[in-house]
């Protein structure tokens, strides 16, 4: 019962379509748990429900020992649940630095301060600059986030999520649309986080998944058909048939 995140019997339907079908899974502290599955399997919908963006029809979500099923997305974020979006979600008019500093601000004291200039707060811009530097975006700090390249935006989004100092990161295809070098850097950063920050990683890049994951769950039609160590998943005949088949062939 030490799991950081425990999802129990989660269900969600859109009309007649069962997108999440009695799904259960857990993430241990510091663990990187990858979720793979074909397009439309319900991976993004799962992340929406865990993060509080979409309410489930049934089931429970326990985070750090508390039932957060009824909590708002903001409430979960403050409790240490951060997420990235499959479709990049940033503040395009703000500079890259302001994007990250705002996420630092969310966790450091009240934001009902009306008179002192926020850009002058070293307690916010300091950590934000450090994070940007880790993603190789130091030179882009003052640029409007909307003007960054696609790959840079993906990395900025990760920096924003990390800036909230999360206990658990929910990542929805962080590598999609990044260049080879960018993707290598992201994998490196994620590897550096394992042990300290737990990660639920949805990703299509199998090389990255099998290199990073402690455990892999395979999601098909809203249901987990297998969970296990990467090696076990790779050789699981059911998984090969349902998902890895085309790649193995």
């Amino acid at each position: 019962m030490t799991a950081l995140l425990r999802v129990e019997g989660l269900s969600k339907s859109y009309g007649a379509l069962r997108v999440t079908d009695g799904l259960s899974l857990s993430v241990e502290p510091g663990e990187l748990h990858a979720v793979i599955g074909p397009n439309g399997a319900g991976k993004t919908t799962l992340i929406h429900q865990i993060s509080g963006m979409t309410p489930p029809d049934a089931g429970r979500i326990l985070f750090a020992g508390e039932d957060v099923t009824g909590r708002s997305m903001a409430g979960r974020a403050l409790a240490g649940l951060a997420r990235s979006f499959q479709i990049t979600s940033i503040l395009p008019r703000f500079s890259a630095l302001q994007n990250v500093a705002l996420a630092v601000q969310a966790r450091s004291g009240s934001s009902f301060r009306f008179l002192s200039p926020v850009d002058g707060e070293a307690a916010l811009t300091g950590p934000a600059r450090d994070l940007l530097a880790r993603f190789g975006l130091a030179e882009r700090a003052e640029m409007p986030a909307g003007a960054l390249s696609h790959g840079e935006k993906r990395q900025l989004e990760l920096a924003i999520a990390l800036a909230t100092a999360p206990k658990l990161l929910l990542l929805d295809e962080p590598l999609a649309g990044t260049s080879h070098a960018e993707s290598a850097r992201i994998v490196e950063i994620l590897r550096g986080l394992t042990g300290s920050v737990a990660i639920l990683l949805v990703e299509h890049d199998m090389e990255a998944v099998f290199a990073l994951a402690d455990r892999v769950s395979v999601l098909v039609y809203g249901r987990v058909i297998a969970t296990g160590a990467p090696e076990a998943i790779r050789s699981n005949p059911e998984v090969r048939a349902a998902y890895l088949g085309e790649e193995a062939a």
């Binding site: 979600s89 703000f94 302001q98 705002l102 301060r113 926020v118």
Partner: peptide, 20 residues
């Protein structure tokens, strides 16, 4: 200010603001 930054952020992308 801090407040103004949040107000503008919520104008541009409320979902992102809730997510942080």
């Amino acid at each position: 200010s801090r407040f103004g930054r949040v107000l503008e952020g919520a104008r541009d992308n409320p979902v992102r603001m809730e997510a942080i």
